[in-house]
Amino acid sequence: MIEVLRSGPMTTVQDLGRFGLRHLGVSQAGVLDPIALQQGNLILGNAQNAAVLEIGVGPLYLRFTSPSRVVLTGVDFAGTLTTGTDTSSIQQVLPGHPVNIVAGSTLSLLRPAIAGAKGYLAVAGGIDVPLVLGSRSTDLNNRFGGLNGRALQAGDYIPLTTYTPSQQTADTLVRSFSPSHVLRALPGPDYDLFDDNAHQQFWLQPWGISHQSNRMGMRLKGKQLHLHHRVNLLSSGVLPGDVQVPEDGLPIILANDAQTIGGYPRIASVIQADLWQLAHMSPNTSVYFQPVSHAIAVEAKLQQSHYFERLGEQLRQARHSDHR
């Protein structure tokens, strides 16, 4: 078990999310950065979809009541591991480098190196909250899944799957954390409803990230986008990555907790291979949209799964040579 000693807002239990239930209004939820989750689980030899902690805002102080092994992925969170009371035993916890934990140790994750970016903590075996509708992800809006359907709080105990130390894995180089702030996108179903100026603005201007962004959507700031004329669209299914433009003309990129049906015009959809960047958008940065072809979008997604296959293979070999 992990005892939560202190938790800033928005640290939640997440896996890859819920699928196949959008017709009933159930959102995807799940990690905003699926790359970070898969890296963490591969490094620890976990199941691909094992639940992790998505750390929104620090600080997060955790005390481990049993031995474990963890790895931080995503943004650097100024992490340290303290064993016992002796300050000489403080160990730095860096992204991508797994650490062994003895019972009674305290893991402190202070703050993200980039404000607004997320850290991900994978634990050997995975976090063992009950599956709800096929996922361990927290649905914050509807208060189910994860740990009691909410963000972590001091005093919580997080159940873990039993850890067998033989699952040890070697250190490895994971792809470095470097969001480009360029989101490749495909024109959306309502693209032609927008005027030429809106098309230019959409692809060319840097979009600021509003402070009101959250797991439901990234709200963007910039010059407003206008339609040729006002339209009344009938509500239809929407997906994470869709870029909706409400009446105020400022786009919203729908994220994992977004509702399943919407009625605003959709100018574009961010390609799936770039959606992980939504996890790391800070209010002090800007993003650009870059038009790409459908073929490139499909290829980018394929490349990503190849990357995980290679990483998995590399780790298996490292583990093998370790055991000799």
Binding site: G20, S236, G237, I261
Partner: peptide, 13 residues
């Protein structure tokens, strides 16, 4: 992956 009826429309993923 998803079959989502909307108002007068249907989304398939």
């Amino acid at each position: 992956l998803e079959i989502v009826p909307g108002m007068g429309n249907l989304l398939l993923r």
